[in-house]
């Protein structure tokens, strides 16, 4: 099962630290690497609450690496 993870690459999300999330996603432990598909997306229209990350169909506002990893874990658990 693959969980799609889309990181907003808009101006605000870029400046609010989306790169930190990207770095973490790109360096996830091997067991997760095969379960996620990381991509970028253009503005979600929630610039004041960035960075925004969409994990499957759940939009995370003011995302941090921890929040994103948590959401991925939950998604994987729910789909098992």
């Amino acid at each position: 099962m693959i969980v799609p993870v889309k990181v907003c690459a808009g101006t605000s999300c870029h400046l609010l630290g989306n790169q930190e999330i990207i770095d973490v996603l790109e360096n996830m432990p091997a067991q997760y690497q095969n379960c996620i598909m990381v991509g970028f997306t253009s503005c979600f229209g929630a610039c004041e609450q960035g960075p925004c990350v969409l994990v499957s169909d759940k939009l995370i506002y003011q995302a941090t690496p921890e929040k994103v990893i948590q959401a991925i874990k939950e998604e994987l658990r729910s789909k098992k």
Binding site: C8, A9, T11, Q19, G39, F40, T41, S42, C43, G45
Partner: peptide, 22 residues
């Protein structure tokens, strides 16, 4: 512009795909 791109894609009825690499 991200919002501008979304706007044009919406009006054209086409998909906007963000590239995978910084």
């Amino acid at each position: 512009g991200g919002a501008t791109g979304n706007l044009v894609a919406r009006e054209m009825g086409r998909e906007i795909k963000t590239n995978l690499k910084y």
